[in-house]
Design a protein around this nucleic acid. Structure first.
Length: 125
DNA sequence: GTTCTCACA
DNA sequence: TGTGAGAA
């Protein structure tokens, strides 16, 4: 059903609503946008208008953040996720939601693994 | 009243 | 990230 998909992609929520829905401050929400994590539309008054998809996006970001991830990490994962979606369309055509989530968490672990750094027993100096 | 941008502690 | 100023 594309209609629902379309509706949930309609940006009609002002930042105030997003604040309540996500329990975040306007500052944070705007900051996430600055980092390219969300892409709200702008109305004629230059006001940010978020879609339900954006809410979901922000909610996830918030979740990852509380799991100890940095904005930079999440940023990377999200950018990669978008590219993966493109790849999936080209190769598998369609993927189950379950599989998509697996891939996402896989990427999450991947980026999270970068946290360990590669300084095991060999120092650079 | 709400949101925007920019700047600073 | 928080907060305040000044404008829309």
């Amino acid at each position: 059903m594309k209609e629902k998909d379309l509706r949930r992609s309609l940006s009609v929520l002002p930042i105030g609503t997003v604040m309540k829905l996500t329990s975040l401050t306007a500052r944070q929400i705007r900051y996430y946008e600055e980092q390219g994590l969300v892409s709200p539309e702008r109305n004629e008054g230059n006001r940010r208008m978020y879609s339900l998809n954006d809410i979901d996006e922000i909610l996830e970001i918030k979740d990852y953040l509380s799991e100890g991830m940095n904005i930079s990490k999440i940023k990377k994962v999200y950018e990669q996720r978008k590219q993966d979606e493109l790849n999936n369309k080209d190769t598998h055509k369609n993927l189950s939601d379950e599989e998509a989530r697996k891939i996402l968490s896989d990427e999450l672990l991947n980026v999270g693994g970068l946290n360990y750094k590669d300084v095991k027993g060999n120092n650079s100096f």
